[in-house]
Nucleic acid binder design. Structure first.
Lengths: 229, 229
DNA sequence: TCAAAAGTGTTAACCATACACCCATGC
DNA sequence: GCATGGGTGTATGGTTAACACTTTTGA
């Protein structure tokens, strides 16, 4: 069932950089390739774009197929199109990055048909294709964007202690933050609502859990508020 | 000379949003289509990506071919891939935005083979395809990015008075700026070098001209400086 | 001499930073 | 009772925002 065109066309794929946050470490979900080029190497989940789906849809579909992840934060990152990024033929890839609440998705990764695993972002194996460059671009984007958009919450569970949020920001901003100043600033924005729950099973005083109020963020944004950390 | 593939492939194009700044107005360069879909409508310059060129190269080539512009600031914007953005068939387009010093390129536009013209960004005609959406995305990106990267200078001539720079920022930030505070801040960064020239042919006191020192910016950036306005 | 824009400093409010101790809990 | 992190306030310095008049030049 061949398809013929008057001019040659590059193949079009999507690749996804899936970030998670766990115990103070930023992690990325990788998949071990079983097919020909770079077989056995780790790679970003991804695949070909079908003609009857948008590229966003293709990214979500591939993620669901290869990692079981659905209903997650997903955003287009950049399109990679150097001539020989794929040794077989010309392939242009639209890269996405995704943020997942690791708590909800921990077991899935290792037990799937395709071998998938979480890697700490500063301990990444050699990757297939130009995926190291894609990952690098995604990391820079994430680290830049957490400052001015409240996307960090996508990496935390529904309810979280402030210290966890602070750790996340310390990793992203690559600098230690003062506990009191951090609390003042983040609580002062009025985007977090206190729950009546506290941490469970910790060997010290349990911290109060908070929830991000995205309704409220939308309201404030309309009124000219801008998130900044 | 047909090309055949096992699976169907979308066509891949680039489209460019070219910004210029003139007499206090932000402008965009558009081209009148002569070919079939949307013939006679205004559109962004762009075209198909060849197999032997990167997408960046394709964008520069199309710009040169259709508008004569070369050696300009060009950056990838976003990739647009909804299923029926082109009525003929599936076409995915990687959009770029470009910043040009309008002074240098004024005459070219109207005299070329293809009809090209500069339009004020808030007086844009009905555009072909989804080019209105692309333009909108580019505008948001530009307005966001001028705050934290010194790209505004790409829109001004080599030597410019501070008032012109201020007008540019007023348009991009969509708010009036205080003249004294603006000068203090921008001069305080140490990125502008005073020339010994002044405006010519103005019907009032001529303003001193400044030049952006991008060498110095690169140095400062390495030392942790970050541009902010 | 008038019009039009250039150029120039000070003050007050606000915001960001630095900093240290007591508290609650589980072991 | 001790180790571990949770939780809290103040003082200071720096940054930003508001604000008006004089100067230069060409018409």
């Amino acid at each position: 069932m061949p398809f013929t065109y008057e001019y040659p066309r590059p193949a079009l794929t999507v690749d996804c950089v899936v970030f998670g946050f766990d115990e103070g470490d930023l992690k990325v979900l990788l998949i071990e390739r079983d097919l020909k080029p770079f077989a056995g190497r780790w790679a970003l989940p991804g695949g070909f774009v079908n003609l009857d789906e948008t590229i966003d849809t293709a990214a979500r579909r591939e993620l669901a197929e290869e990692t079981g992840l659905t209903e997650i934060y997903l955003e287009q990152l950049y399109t990679f199109g150097t001539v020989d990024r794929d040794p077989r033929e010309r392939v242009v890839s639209v890269a996405y990055y995704a943020l997942v609440k690791l708590e909800d998705h921990r077991p899935r990764a290792a037990t799937d048909a395709r071998k998938a695993a979480w890697f700490n972002v500063d301990d990444i194996p050699s990757l297939a294709f130009d995926h190291a460059e894609i990952l690098d671009t995604a990391l820079r984007r994430l680290k830049g964007k957490v400052r001015y958009e409240p996307i960090g919450f996508e990496l935390l569970p529904e309810k979280f202690p402030l210290s966890q949020l602070q750790h996340l920001y310390e990793v992203c901003l690559e600098e230690p933050l003062d506990k009191r100043n951090f609390r003042k600033k983040i609580l002062g924005m009025g985007l977090l609502t206190e729950t009546d729950e506290v941490q469970q099973d910790v060997a010290h005083r349990a911290a109060r859990l908070y929830r991000f109020d995205s309704r409220r963020y939308q309201q404030l944004k309309k009124r000219g508020f801008s998130f900044w950390l």
